[in-house]
Design a protein around this nucleic acid. Structure first.
Lengths: 177, 177
DNA sequence: TGACCATACCTCGAAGCCGAGGTATAGCAA
DNA sequence: TTGCTATACCTCGGCTTCGAGGTATGGTCA
């Protein structure tokens, strides 16, 4: 997820680590902050994998900066990951939002974008609850525990809003394809 | 999060590992499945920490089962964690739902339950967006990218539903306190 | 001149998670 | 009797993450 986000941000334009940090903080920071000890090793991994290159420049306001630039391999990896996200990217909301944040990078391929959205739709259409009475899913109405009731109500509202948005966006994409 | 979920399920009644696995699959499995290689070491950690004990029994249909039972320390740890969840438990939706799933275990303490809900409310009231134009947060209406627009729309719907539920539930808790 | 802060990057050990693989037992069907 | 499936548990290496700590530069302000 971090890898995807880094590649996604760098696709727009080269950034140095500190800027990247701030972009990441804006995207997912209020939910799940990224520490330096996570970010910098991740950058190094991407570099050794040949997905990005760094060029040192004198720092504007402080220490020298390492400007990070996506390579062709990096760009290809990003687009590939966006075209075929794995199941966790589709089911976990945090990861899914990261995919959505960069899905526009597939801008020449509305059919590929639509295919990704359809995978999410399929996931949302799977009958799945959080709680079961034996094998039977427990609906929000019958939950006696107010907190579990909350989970079900919130999940239902989210799913409804997302289905709505998915359907309208898919219609637009299909139209432009 | 896994630790919290295990303690939470065992608070209801003793379970063996395989049952626990199925409970966990129902709670978070459709979003984020838990593998054996995660579950069993986690159980072992809880055991060495003295939070649960296991008693081997002949298996009903197969290999012998290890029935897991919460100790007093385990029960205390669970309640403590529910009373004072850390920030990530409050901000990350996956973790927050896990807290909610077991918050009823604080049933004698409506004030403590309300305090936890209020922390979530405070988090939701923080002005936070996913995208910024400089320092200014970008609203769903101005987002030109349809996918980022989706993120903002879905997040807005979720937040609205959750605020609603939090307010009504807090009113009930305050009434019963 | 010195204190302090924001910028900018990095390392290290501890811990957790994952997937792949392994070991058994019991029941059922070909 | 062979094989399959479900039950039930476990280990291992590899990878990622985290937090705590460290280094260095340049600017502001007293």
């Amino acid at each position: 997820m971090l890898k995807l986000a880094i590649l996604g941000f760098l696709h727009d334009r080269p950034l140095h680590g500190y800027e990247l940090r701030r972009h990441l903080a804006a995207l997912t920071g209020h939910v799940r902050p990224i520490s330096d000890g996570t970010l910098y090793p991740a950058i190094k991994r991407l570099e050794t994998d040949g997905l990005l290159v760094r060029s040192t420049e004198p720092g504007a306001a402080a220490a020298p900066r390492h400007t990070l630039r996506l390579t062709d391999a990096g760009r290809a990896t990003l687009l590939d990951r966006l075209r075929t996200p794995d199941d966790l990217d589709v089911s976990d909301e945090n990861r899914w939002f990261t995919v959505l944040a960069f899905l526009r990078h597939l801008d020449g391929e509305p059919a590929a974008q639509a295919a990704v959205l359809r995978r999410r739709l399929a996931f949302l259409d799977e009958p799945a609850s959080f709680f079961y009475d034996g094998d039977r899913p427990v609906g929000a109405e019958e939950a006696t525990d107010p907190f579990r009731r909350g989970i079900l109500l919130i999940a239902r509202a989210t799913t409804a809003a997302e289905r709505d948005w998915l359907h309208t966006t898919l219609a637009e994409l299909d139209h432009s394809a």
